[in-house]
Computed example of a mutant assay.
Amino acid sequence: MNKIKCVIVDDEPLAISLLESYVNKVPFLELVFSTENPIEAMEYVQNNASDLIFLDIQMPELTGINFMKILGDRKKYILTTAYSEYALEGYDHHIIDYLLKPVPFERFYKSVLKAQERFMPAGSAEPTHFFVKSSGQQHRINFKDILYVESIRDYVNVKTREQEYIVLDTLKSMEQQLPETSFLRIHKSFIVNLNQIKNVTTRKIMLITEQEIPVGESYRMHLLTRIK
């Protein structure tokens, strides 16, 4: 599918900057407009193509709730707010999700995955690849080519048969980007492609490349259940 065109509306410049940086990290999102002024945002949305609006609830000129009342259901929304009591009111407008400030990337990513599901055509196939930023470039990696993903302090190593990609990310975030049907976390530091496993013991797995990966005790039963 095409990228989801995103608009950010928030009266706090720092909040906008944070969301902009998050949107730019996610391959299936495209930032098309951001502003501190909800009236300006309303004009943009009515005259330009956009799909998803990250919308602050508390703004002086026009609240996020009133913004949605004016536009109606023509757009999809993810609310951003510092006040959790607004969440239930927001859901009355059939929004996708709400994010409580300050927004961590992990929570943001879960939210936009929900949005991706909404925009995905019925019956569409599971994604076959994703993009990671490594060595200053965006690299397309096919999921089927990944052997494992390893946590290395503040980075992860995405290992394929041909290459390694060192990415500034967390293993937990990476786990959320990989298809659950093919990938499984088997250790605090490793996610493996189940299709690349040659054999399994209680303490380690052997990949088809003859590389051994340790199995964490707390992950063992889940692994054994999955491979059955």
Rank of each mutant, 00 (worst) to 15 (best):
E89S: 08
A82S: 15
K101Q: 09
K101F: 05
D97E: 12
E89F: 01
R74W: 06
Y91T: 08
K101W: 06
P102I: 07
I95Y: 01
Y86L: 09
E89R: 10
K76F: 08
E89M: 05
R74A: 11
E106M: 07
E106Q: 11
F105G: 04
Y98A: 02
A87C: 12
K75M: 15
L88R: 11
Y98I: 00
G72N: 08
Y77V: 03
L88E: 14
E85C: 00
T81R: 10
T81H: 11
R107E: 14
I96G: 08
I78L: 04
L79E: 04
E106R: 08
Y83C: 01
I78C: 03
R107K: 15
H94Y: 15
V103G: 14
Y91P: 03
H94G: 00
Y98H: 06
K76Y: 09
L71W: 01
L79I: 13
D92M: 13
K76M: 13
E85L: 00
D97T: 07
K101N: 08
P102N: 05
E89K: 12
T80D: 10
P104H: 02
A82V: 03
I95K: 01
K101S: 04
T80I: 10
L79Y: 05
L99F: 05
E85A: 01
T80F: 03
L99E: 10
Y77P: 13
Y83M: 04
L79M: 14
L100E: 11
Y86E: 07
D97I: 07
E106I: 08
T81K: 09
H94T: 09
E85Q: 11
I78Q: 06
D73W: 10
I96M: 05
D73N: 14
E106P: 00
L79A: 04
A82I: 03
E85I: 00
H93I: 03
R107I: 15
P104L: 06
E89Y: 01
Y98K: 05
L100A: 07
R74F: 07
L71Q: 01
H93P: 01
L71H: 00
I78R: 06
F105I: 02
Y91A: 08
I95L: 10
H94V: 09
